[in-house]
Amino acid sequence: MLTLQVNGTAHQVDVPDDMPLLWVLRDVLGLPGTKFGCGIGQCGACTVHVDGKAVRACSLPVSLVGRRPVTTIEGLAEDEVAAEVTKAWLEIDVVQCGYCQPGQIMAAIALLKGNLHPSDDEIDQAMSGNICRCGTYRRIRAAIRNVAGAV
């Protein structure tokens, strides 16, 4: 039995040690906002925050999370940076199919929390681990710049 801190709540979970955090979130805790894309840390659809840092939940065994707090797309209600990010996303209609967007948004929030005014290179560096097959990159970059300008 492991204790996980997810979105401010402690959860007791009885799962194998090697089970990736992604599947604990989706199939055990019922938090489907975090998406499965590749299973090998290549696409970023499963991006969540562990201790405030963007990590790939598909490749992180749950036993390695320990006591560090986990935040998913469902846990952003009180977060001011997240509110600015989602507002910026909506203002310029970033999303298309939307499947990768929770991961994109989690990556963007982690970037902006560490660096409120990222350069284009820094945006590229932080976001290029997140694939979007619909090709919304230009708008993601623009939305991040708009947040930086607004804060």
Binding site: P32, G33, L90
Partner: peptide
């Protein structure tokens, strides 16, 4: 569909 797709 924008809001539902940005809040998960």
């Amino acid at each position: 569909d924008g809001p539902a797709k940005v809040n998960g």
